[in-house]
Design a protein around this nucleic acid. Structure first.
Length: 200
DNA sequence: AGCCTTTGACCAGCG
DNA sequence: TCGCTGGTCAAAGGC
């Protein structure tokens, strides 16, 4: 009976992870889609001419499109600490472009923020040099946590598909008898089917 | 005192 | 060569 309880709890926990991760994946997908569908800046802003310029550190074309915080025309936090070092009204643009550097001394990280003319609550954020101050590592660790969570969530999804329907009665209460073929090996197998962030 | 934002000046690339 | 433009610098002021 203890084993049945463990199986049930495992399925419950993993199912909850699946729901949460599905929400996160949905957000990530919408961001990715906006990056694909948003118009690119024409002309000089494609940065194709970025070479042999020692004075000017040109920004790499790594642009992201972010939504403003609810009700505010202010770009959301991206997890880094920035110092604004310039602002320029770009020809033909309704809003000025803002220039930021990482607050850490000796860190070359830069970014530009341009408020979209057609969508005032959307900001085009173009990142330049990557962080050399450790903030990037912190962010990478957070990304890894999300990736691990996604792997857990996907495994949980499979687990739920396979076993949860058999455990639910027509009035949505759980049966006290659980499928006999679910084992810890089954759960481990589901994990190992996912892209490898967790090594079992 | 130190850090930040603001803003005009400066510099370099392009046509 | 010159004017336009975008990116950066740096002084000034505020917190």
């Amino acid at each position: 009976m203890k084993q049945d309880v463990c199986r049930y709890l495992a399925a419950e926990i993993l199912s909850s992870y699946d729901k949460a991760m599905s929400l996160l994946n949905g957000i990530a997908l919408s961001v990715a889609l906006s990056a694909v569908t948003a118009p690119l800046n024409p002309g000089r802003d494609n940065f194709a001419y970025t070479n042999c310029n020692h004075y000017r550190k040109m920004l790499a074309p790594r642009a992201e499109y972010v939504e403003a915080r609810h009700g505010e025309e202010v770009p959301p936090e991206d997890g880094f600490n920035w110092r604004k070092y310039g602002q320029k009204l770009i020809l033909g643009a309704k809003y000025p472009r803002e220039y930021f550097q990482c607050v850490c001394r000796h860190c070359d990280a830069t970014k530009m923020v341009q408020q979209m003319e057609t969508e005032p609550l959307t900001f085009e954020v173009t990142y330049g040099e990557s962080h050399s101050c450790g903030q990037e590592n912190k962010n990478q660790n957070e990304e890894l946590l999300v990736a691990v969570g996604t792997q857990v969530g996907r495994a949980a999804g499979k687990l739920s598909e396979c076993y949860i329907p058999e455990m639910v009665t027509p009035n949505n209460s759980y049966k006290t008898k659980y499928p006999s073929d679910i084992t810890y090996d089954t759960i481990l197998q589901l994990f190992s089917d996912q892209p490898s962030y967790i090594h079992l």
